[in-house]
């Protein structure tokens, strides 16, 4: 039979939303567990916890990852961004957050932080995407409320704004 389980901890050092941090974590923790429980980053949602819905999405070294299927110890040396990191010094909202509000791309809000961080990855490439490309880039998120069209429009509008171009009708 199995031996008695011995708790195993590891100290991880990483950068969270611009600040260097360190924590001793249980090696069994997911990154979602650590961000929510140890750092109170409650924008990181627990939806399916099996990589299907995108509610737990965060940016790691600039790329989007579902933190529910990512071990907390893998954060060592990484730069991690959550929705909390998008706020300005006085709590001002970023352009993409404001666009979600303006376009009614939020209803219950559970999917929103994940969607917005994927949108940040898209916008930071500085490229202009077609609607079909944007749909594909956003396809790793489920939203049970909005029907996706308003989300697509919020991202598209912000993309054109940042590119300094008028949004085609």
């Amino acid at each position: 039979m199995a031996e008695k389980f011995v708790k195993q901890y590891k100290t991880v050092h990483f950068n969270l939303n611009g600040n260097d941090v360190e924590r001793s974590v249980d090696v069994r923790a997911s990154l979602t567990d650590m961000l929510r429980n140890d750092f109170r980053m409650t924008s990181v949602k627990k939806g399916c916890e099996v990589g299907e819905c995108g509610a737990c999405n965060v940016l790691i070294d600039g790329e989007a990852f579902n933190s529910c299927i990512y071990l907390a110890v893998w954060a060592e040396g990484k730069h991690i961004r959550t929705l909390e990191g998008l706020l300005g010094p006085d709590g001002e909202m970023s352009d993409i957050q404001q666009a979600f509000i303006d376009e009614a791309a939020i209803q219950c809000g559970f999917c929103t932080p994940g969607f917005i961080l994927t949108a940040v990855e898209i916008l930071e490439t500085g490229k202009e995407y077609t609607d079909a490309e944007l749909r594909k880039l956003l396809s790793g998120h489920l939203c049970r409320c909005t029907g996706y069209e308003n989300i697509l429009r919020a991202v598209k509008k912000t993309m054109y704004k940042r590119l300094g171009k008028a949004m085609p009708e």
């Binding site: 990589g51 999405n57 790329e63 990852f65 990512y70 994927t118 594909k136 880039l137 396809s139 790793g140």
Partner: peptide, 9 residues
């Protein structure tokens, strides 16, 4: 494969 986040991991 899957969606963008799955293709990153």
């Amino acid at each position: 494969v899957g969606g963008p986040q799955i293709r990153n991991i």
